[in-house]
Computed example of a mutant assay.
Amino acid sequence: MKHRTLRGVAALTLGASLLLAGCGSSDGGADDETSDSPTASDAASSNPADVAALEAVTVTGDAGAEPTVEFETPFTVTGAVSRSLDEGDGETIEAGQEITMHTVGFSGADGTKAGSTWETDSPEQLVLDENLYPQLLDVVVGKKVGTRFLFASTQADQATGESATFLTVAEVTGVEDAPVVPDPADVPDRAEGESVTPEDGLPTVTLDDSGTPSVEIPDGYEAPSELIVQPLIKGDGPEVTADQTVIAHYTGWTFDGKAFDSSWERGEPSTFPLNGVIAGWTEGLAGQTVGSQVLLVIPSDMAYGEQGTPDGSIPPDSPLVFVVDILAAY
């Protein structure tokens, strides 16, 4: 979940982790004119070397299917850079709209695949607003549904602190007007509702005065084979559906009790499409009510599975524990 709205949880959603986060990126402007074959004029970056790096990437394959991507490693860029691969032939995409897209991402260091929404058949949602890298807006706005593009950026590897490059190929599958986002002034700071007594034997959650959770995982606690969803506070808001976007506070822990990410620590809640995160979140939060606080104990195969996360913050085959306050949904 390393995007503007879930920055810090290592890639709950592939495309978001690689495409969002970037208001501070260097400026760049794509040409208004496009061609059938991508050229340097289709790229957006302030660094010619980064433009040249994307020009050397080869993408082949039919529209609608995961492409074949070839590039030499190590692949590096100094900042965000994008390249249009084709115009698309559907509806024109405008700023402020919401797109759905398929993505496949790769580590620039060794070319390993970081994940693919084609494999899970779960295209991601993305609102084309000022929270995105300018380079991403440049390569999408004005194009049409069906357009494919390349995007590369650098991130700090949480395990080493060193800079790492990730490369993404995306294909826009749909566009519609963006949903009306709740006014931040109307979003509460924490879950509010009726307390629920959890089942015995689960990790114990304690809240400080601000509502920030901590967790104590019992000695010898074994990872479940199925998702555990335990409401701790029952909110009185509407029921959340899997196709909504959720505003939430959360903290996540590995089974050794180590917190690997927390919106509470960042001082603001996070926003994410519920169909664009790990399965444990999608299935665990859908059906809960706004205002609720939920304990999720997630088996590895509903989290990051055999791969873990690219930055190493979550090792392979790691079950996870989350406490999530559902503050709003739309």
Rank of each mutant, 00 (worst) to 15 (best):
V141D: 05
V240T: 09
A109P: 02
D89G: 01
P198N: 07
L285T: 04
S122Q: 13
N275S: 13
D121Y: 00
L132I: 01
G64V: 08
W281A: 08
G235L: 05
A53T: 07
L295V: 01
S116F: 00
V290E: 11
A328E: 11
K143R: 15
G108A: 10
T76H: 06
T147H: 12
G29Q: 12
G174N: 14
S116K: 03
A56L: 05
G201A: 07
V297D: 07
A159S: 15
L320C: 09
P310Q: 10
E239V: 14
D110Y: 08
V181K: 13
F106E: 05
G64F: 04
E192V: 14
E94K: 11
Y250W: 15
V145L: 10
Y330H: 13
P188H: 08
S300D: 14
K144C: 06
G24R: 06
G201C: 11
L19I: 10
K258D: 12
R266I: 04
A159R: 13
Q135M: 03
A191G: 11
D261K: 00
V57R: 06
V323F: 08
V104D: 03
R83E: 09
I298H: 06
G305S: 08
F106T: 05
V51W: 00
D325R: 10
E119H: 04
M302H: 07
L320S: 08
T212I: 03
A95F: 10
Q288D: 02
T212E: 15
V175D: 09
W253D: 07
P269N: 09
D62Y: 02
G161F: 06
G105M: 04
P218V: 01
L132F: 01
P218H: 07
E91V: 04
G267V: 11
D219H: 02
A159F: 02
S300T: 13
E192L: 12
G111C: 10
S46M: 09
S318R: 07
P273D: 11
D129M: 01
S163Q: 15
A30D: 09
L137T: 14
V323I: 09
V321C: 04
V297L: 12
D209C: 00
E192F: 05
G220Y: 08
S41R: 11
I233W: 02
A52M: 02
Y133T: 01
D86H: 07
A95Q: 15
F272W: 07
L207E: 12
Q97G: 00
Y221H: 15
S153D: 13
G79P: 05
I93W: 03
V169E: 11
D27A: 13
G211Q: 12
L327M: 06
T13Q: 14
L150N: 00
G96A: 03
D261Q: 05
L137M: 05
A170R: 01
D121F: 01
D317G: 03
Y330R: 12
H102D: 13
G235K: 10
I247S: 00
E216F: 01
E87T: 11
F151I: 04
L274N: 10
T245S: 14
A43D: 00
A223M: 04
D36K: 08
T112A: 14
G193H: 03
E66D: 09
L150C: 02
D261S: 14
S225K: 12
T160N: 03
S26D: 08
E283N: 13
D301T: 09
G291L: 00
T112C: 01
Q155M: 03
M101Y: 15
T76N: 14
A63N: 03
F272N: 01
E98Y: 00
K143H: 14
S313M: 06
E222T: 13
E306A: 15
